[in-house]
Structure formats: structure tokens, C-alpha cells
């Protein structure tokens, strides 16, 4: 009966993942490997960026007239924020579908999201990346790694660490069923600062991590070290988010740009 319960939990979490995220690894890989009828529009310089802004992300850029006179770096930063906000709302819905999450103290739910969403976001971002670039605008665009590196500092430092993480993470060859459990494990984490009901969250975390372990054994029978490798990725993601939060604070201080209110409340007093 215990194994049956674990399989049910894995299935519930995978279904919640497929239902709540607009993009997933399977869709992203179909686009990145050229198996779609219309390939993504490639953004590789200022000219192609402007074209993409007029078509693919017109809604994001056009939503604020204040962006019209800003330089490319600030406009790209704004688009990154829009995508992050969309993914945070998807992650919130996903979390609510994870069995037990909605029964937690509401303040603990907030804390788990505050500390978990960026780690989850960067883990899922890897699905949209290959060594040459990143899918954007729901898969309709592809921005090259070289172009992102060529932006002026500090913006040029924003994505490169995520590419470096993604290349190592993608070599583990996880599929969406693995990622669903991994993202749930990121969110249901008992050692986030300020949690009230730690034992309740630790019990949830334990069952999700057990299910992840079991699932990896059956889904990747030839890779016996996949589970410990993934546990190490949790540590790497925490470091990646700490550095990202510092960079965002630097940009906020030194650049003439605004930070979305949802991201502001996530970053405030984070680490």
C-alpha cells in the first residue's frame, strides 16, 4: 500500500506540473531540436531584438511607455521580469496542487514560495536552454547566449551563470516527470528561514523526496547516482539564487530601472 501511495503522489504532482506550466521540457526540446513547423525567431543582435520587440513581446514592451527610451539592456531586463512573474504565478498554482501544501499555515506557504520560486525557476529555465541560447516568449523566440554576454555590465552577468548551471543540469537528462517531483521538493523545503510549522513541512518534504528517489530508480535504472546528484543540485541552486539576488540589488541601486512589485516582495529581506 505504501508504494501505491507513493505512485499516486508522483502522479498527482506530475499532473499538476503539466497542467500549470505553459512551457515544459518536452515542448522546449521539440522546439530546440527543430521539430516544429515554424522555428523560433532568433535574437542575436540589436536589430533582431528590435524586431522581436515589435512582434513577439510587443505586449510586454508596449505595456509601459516608460520603456520606449530605455536602452536594450533595461528592456531585456524588463522582459526577464515579466517572464519571472508569469512563472511565479504558475509555480504558486502548482504548489497549491501539491498534496498537503494548501493545508499549511498561510504564512508558511508564503515563506516556502518566497525562498523556493527562484530555485524552481532556474531549474526549469534549464529546459529552455541549450549551449547556444535560450527560448523566450513562450518558445516563439530564441535569444543567443553570445548576444546576452555582449550586453553591458552588469546585465551581461545576469544569464551566463544560469547557462553554466543549465549545461550541467541538462546532462542529467531528466524528463518532465522527474522535474515535476524535483520542483515540488524545492518548494516543500523544511529549512527556509522563518517557518512556523517545521515538522509539518518536513513530513511533506520527506514524502516528496522519497517519491523522487523511487521514481528516479524506476525511470533511470542505469544511473544509480542520479538521486545524490540531484540533491547536490538543490545546494547549487541555492547558491545561484543568492548570487542572482545580489545582482538584482546591484541593478536596482545603480540602474534607472524598476523592479516588479511581486519580485520586490520576494527579494526583500531574503538572504
Amino acid at each position: 500500500p505504501q508504494v501505491a501511495d507513493q505512485k499516486t503522489l508522483a502522479k498527482q504532482i506530475y499532473e499538476a506540473y503539466l497542467k500549470n506550466f505553459n512551457m515544459n521540457k518536452s515542448k522546449a526540446r521539440t522546439i530546440l531540436t527543430g521539430k516544429t513547423s515554424t522555428p523560433p525567431f532568433v535574437i542575436h543582435d540589436m536589430e533582431t531584438l528590435q524586431l522581436a520587440e515589435q512582434t513577439l513581446v510587443a505586449k510586454m514592451v508596449g505595456s509601459s511607455g516608460a520603456l520606449l527610451n530605455k536602452d536594450a539592456e533595461v528592456r531585456i531586463f524588463h522582459c526577464c521580469q515579466c517572464t519571472s512573474v508569469e512563472t511565479v504565478t504558475e509555480l504558486t498554482e502548482f504548489a497549491k496542487s501539491v498534496p498537503g501544501f494548501s493545508n499549511l499555515d498561510l504564512n508558511d506557504q508564503v515563506t516556502l514560495l518566497k525562498y523556493g520560486v527562484h530555485e524552481a525557476l532556474f531549474a526549469m529555465l534549464a529546459s529552455c536552454m541549450n549551449k547556444d541560447g535560450l527560448l523566450v516568449a513562450h518558445g516563439s523566440g530564441f535569444i543567443t547566449r553570445e548576444f546576452l554576454k555582449s550586453l553591458r555590465r552588469p546585465f551581461s552577468q545576469m544569464m551566463e551563470p544560469k547557462f553554466q548551471f543549465a549545461m550541467k543540469f541538462n546532462s542529467l537528462e531528466l524528463d518532465d516527470s522527474d522535474l515535476a517531483l524535483f520542483v515540488a521538493a524545492i518548494i516543500c523545503c523544511g529549512d527556509r528561514p522563518g517557518l512556523v510549522n517545521v515538522p509539518h513541512i518536513e513530513r511533506m518534504q520527506e514524502s516528496i523526496v522519497n517519491v523522487l528517489h523511487l521514481h528516479l530508480k524506476s525511470n533511470h535504472p542505469d544511473n544509480e547516482f542520479l538521486f545524490p546528484k540531484l540533491l547536490q543540485k538543490l545546494v547549487d541552486l541555492r547558491q545561484l539564487v543568492t548570487e542572482h539576488a545580489q545582482l538584482v540589488q546591484e541593478i536596482k541601486k545603480t540602474e534607472d530601472t524598476s523592479l516588479h512589485p511581486l519580485l520586490q516582495e520576494i527579494y526583500r529581506d531574503m538572504y
Binding site: 505595456s63 508569469e86 504565478t89 497549491k96 504564512n107 508564503v110 511581486l262 516582495e265 526583500r268 529581506d269
Partner: peptide, 20 residues
């Protein structure tokens, strides 16, 4: 609670979208 009012709102009411 005031510090995280958008997260609170998202958790309590999924049908209220966040402006981009």
C-alpha cells in the same frame, strides 16, 4: 502579511492575475 501581499493574494485567489 503586508510585506508579501501579492503572494498572499495569489495563494488565496488564483483568479486574480498579476499585472506585468
Amino acid at each position: 502579511k503586508e510585506k508579501h501581499k501579492i503572494l498572499h493574494r495569489l495563494l488565496q485567489n488564483s483568479s486574480s492575475p498579476v499585472d506585468l
